[in-house]
Design a protein around this nucleic acid. Structure first.
Lengths: 340, 340
DNA sequence: TTGTAAGCGTTATCAA
DNA sequence: TTGATAACGCTTACAA
């Protein structure tokens, strides 16, 4: 275990001062003679020298890392988001410090604290909905925060990248209405999340527009984790007047809901038409293949990283941005006209 | 944007020297009077002070981060591994810098370079199989490297956590043999990865033990990404003498293989019995539910982090460890006795 | 029990 | 075009 070369080693070896080495390292910080540069580059190569990130960060405020605070990597939606974020970040020479909250605001608080100590210049996050003051403090400390997928109304100073959640839910609902369904149920995430609230709102609006009242017993705003999705399905199907359509408004709940539907041997779409949020590799592999609302993960990731890195480099206008990208409705075989 | 308090601010405010503050920060580094400590803690609280990670890392060799270099987060196996690793790391007060290689050794090289600059004390990785010298250099620089899931024979100085890949493949193969299958095909990852090699070896051994020769045309060692899995399925089913059993030896290939099987309207398990590597949330949701070899992801993650953090803290014995955990064979409905 | 001061490896500001 | 040198915020001998 030999120890790594420092900038001083390079300087000595090349017969120049550290300042010169620093300049060739950070191209354009100052003048360096063509010949000197060549010699230095050569020595850097030979000594296999890499500047230490910690020293750089200590010196300048500049950070080369962004924090990524995700709800749950076991959820394929977030996993793919992480995948794209890491990819986009790398393309910009930035690395990603990953933290997960498991939808728990205490863990989220812990993550925020952690991030304050690290010198991340920006944070991309899917907030749980709590910790408003802590997020605010992070912003206050000069960290650029970008919320993706979800948002927090009380924090207008952070950037947001998301789909139109209300609209997407409305489209999904109208799809079932158009198929002749009247009793339509909606399973959503907790109303403490913006996605939960917005999607339920879209659902209600679509029902209202069709002259129907959304029966409250058909709306389940339930936790993401655990088997709440399954239980909601059981409850819905135990109703005297069963719904014939069901929208599962959050990926996190699709698996448990679907498993319960299968366990109960309910015919899809014969007895129950199903529309779920978020497309992923297996939604078309199950039978029947699922009708889905597909979020454009690449776009979400790209814009998030653009904002996070842009603000890092100070190349973005002041006012926070709220970027909306289009979700896509993909009809497959889990939804069909209501059988009379 | 007010600027964060430093250790000096705390010292001044508490009327002590920075050394004292540092000591209360790193409990046990030196003596501090009970009363003084209380005062300092109080000020820290009031000023909302957090030590800057960069400064700490610069000073001591101690790093509070580990690098995680994964093949592909879009693959649920790796995503769940990441999830568990992040969780285990957080429990130990360590954060995770995430990088992905997309199975590309150039991107892997880039990741290694990045990690050299960051002061990560340890790296957990699923190596592509290349970059032997670069991994070696990382080790040489004193970074603790832990390979998980895969390994590289030429690097005996790194820790490894994995299942018995040969054995698992053998079990899967014997399962199909026991069901009466004679022509069994095996799709695996590239032989440049240890998992590819070991699983194919296990397959061959099981076939040999049963007195059968593994027909080379029934073994496809193919890339992870893209639709190679699908193409392999097509090739296999186009054979004059079709296999009646198929083992897909890598998660990354399951989806494309399965999709092709469905497209070709092959009856599973009627015409083709299927066993695939790695269990995940949807394997039991497709129809028929898949017979799988399940890797104990929690164990893989836990041991990896144990090793990574243990070496960081210097609390582990010198010789590198090769930890093997048990895979579990889970029979579901995609495999059945050969129909004569 | 506390304080002083010397680094850790960079970048940035001035002079030369 | 180059070189000293002072930060950056923290830890850690070593003194007091």
């Amino acid at each position: 275990m030999r120890k790594a070369a420092t900038i001083r080693d390079v300087a000595r070896e090349a017969g120049v001062s550290v300042a010169v080495v620093s300049r060739v390292l950070n191209d354009g910080t100052g003048p360096v003679a063509q010949q000197t540069r060549a010699r230095v580059v050569d020595v850097i190569e030979r000594l296999d020298y890499r500047p230490r990130a910690a020293a750089r960060e200590l010196q300048q405020r500049s950070a080369t890392a962004v924090g990524l605070v995700l709800a749950d990597l076991a959820n394929p939606f977030f996993a793919r988001l992480a995948d794209r974020v890491v990819g986009e970040a790398r393309a910009r020479g930035i690395h990603v410090v990953l933290l997960t909250t498991l939808e728990d605001s205490h863990l989220e608080a812990e993550s925020i604290e952690t991030l304050i100590g690290r010198s991340v210049g920006s944070v991309i996050a899917t907030p749980t909905g709590g910790n408003v003051d802590r997020w605010a403090r992070l912003v206050e400390l000069g960290v650029n925060v970008v919320f993706v997928d979800r948002e927090i109304d009380e924090l207008p100073e952070v950037d947001v990248v998301a789909i139109h959640n209300d609209l997407s839910a409305e489209v999904a609902t109208r799809h079932l209405l158009d198929l002749g369904h009247e009793r339509i149920a909606f399973i959503s995430g907790p109303l403490s999340t913006s996605t939960g609230r917005d999607r339920v709102a879209g659902f209600k609006r679509a029902m209202g527009n069709a002259g129907k009242v959304a029966d409250d017993r058909l709306i389940h705003a339930i936790p993401f984790r655990g088997d709440a999705g399954g239980d909601a399905v059981s409850a819905l199907l135990a109703l005297p007047n069963r719904p014939t359509g069901l929208i599962v408004g959050n990926t996190a709940q699709v698996r448990s809901a679907l498993r319960r539907v299968k366990q109960m041997a309910v015919d899809v779409p014969g007895e129950l038409s199903l529309v779920v949020f978020d497309d992923n590799p297996w939604t078309e592999l199950v039978s029947p293949p699922l009708t889905v609302v597909r979020q454009p993960i690449d776009m979400l990731a790209m814009h998030s990283v653009d904002l996070a890195v842009g603000r890092l480099r100070g190349s973005l206008p002041e006012p926070p941005r709220r970027i909306r990208v289009e979700a896509e409705f993909v009809q497959r075989s889990s939804s069909a006209p209501r059988s009379s």
